[in-house]
């Protein structure tokens, strides 16, 4: 469902999509059933001339099971959601693959700036490449990112990666991603950060190895 709206572009995107689809599907099913039941009851017990309304307490077993049975089934659904969510959490937050390269991401009102390692592949050296509004990465490589904020709370959101991580002033928050699709995609801020929050956008350019090498050569 969601993958037809926003293309999955990282190794963990399909896992996150599965949990979102699972939650969405179950909510749609139970929500639809509840609404259908509600309207059916409205129709079934509509006003009829000469028929007095019947007061029910809800304690009668034959009525109470309309609540109890769906309740137990929904608890089973919840357990399934928790199981799959923990599995996905482990894959994204605990089972971190070996890192190929690093990126420093700095959020501020109202722009994203990026520090790339440069040709030597090491962060904090003279050949680092600093950019504003544009992040360059290579497809099929694992990147570890470090998030920093210069002022207030932000959230580093890359929809195609299914990545959204808060950026907190005073902290250096790390995470990772592994792009699987080349192209230019959106980066946005997903935490209200002031009047310019809605226009705090940037682009991530996921390049083939040749394109990335050409960019590295031209950037210095």
């Amino acid at each position: 469902m969601i993958e037809s709206l926003v293309q999955p572009g990282s190794t963990f995107a399909p896992d996150i999509d599965f949990v979102i689809n699972l939650v969405g599907g179950l909510v749609f099913f139970w929500g639809g059933l509840t609404v259908a039941m509600f309207f059916w009851l409205l129709w079934r017990y509509r006003y009829r001339e000469g028929v007095k309304a019947l007061y029910v307490t809800g304690n009668e077993p034959e009525l109470k099971r309309w609540i109890n049975i769906p309740h137990y089934l929904i608890i089973l659904c919840d357990l399934a959601i928790i199981g799959f969510a923990v599995q996905t959490w482990y894959k994204v937050k605990q089972d971190i693959p070996p890192v190929d390269d690093e990126i420093r991401v700095v959020g501020q009102q109202w722009a994203w700036t990026f520090q790339h390692t440069g040709p030597d592949g090491k962060m904090g050296t003279d050949d680092d490449i600093k950019t504003a509004d544009v992040l360059h990465v290579e497809v099929d490589k694992t990147y570890q990112f470090t998030l920093e904020s210069r002022d207030v709370l932000h959230s580093f959101s890359v929809p195609i990666f299914r990545l959204k991580q808060d950026v907190i002033p005073g902290r250096e928050i790390q995470g990772w991603f592994h792009p699987t699709v080349a192209g230019a995609f959106d980066i946005q801020c997903a935490e209200m950060c002031g009047i310019g929050h809605g226009i705090m956008a940037a682009r991530i350019i996921v390049e083939t190895p040749e394109q990335h090498a050409a960019w590295l050569a031209g950037a210095k």
Binding site: Q109, K130, T131, A132
Partner: peptide
């Protein structure tokens, strides 16, 4: 046009640039 306010260390400029674009 990104001629000003698009440098990594221009904190105030980076704040002004999106406002000008709005």
């Amino acid at each position: 046009q990104g001629i000003r306010g698009a440098h990594f260390d221009d904190i105030e400029g980076l704040r002004m640039r999106p406002m000008s674009l709005s």
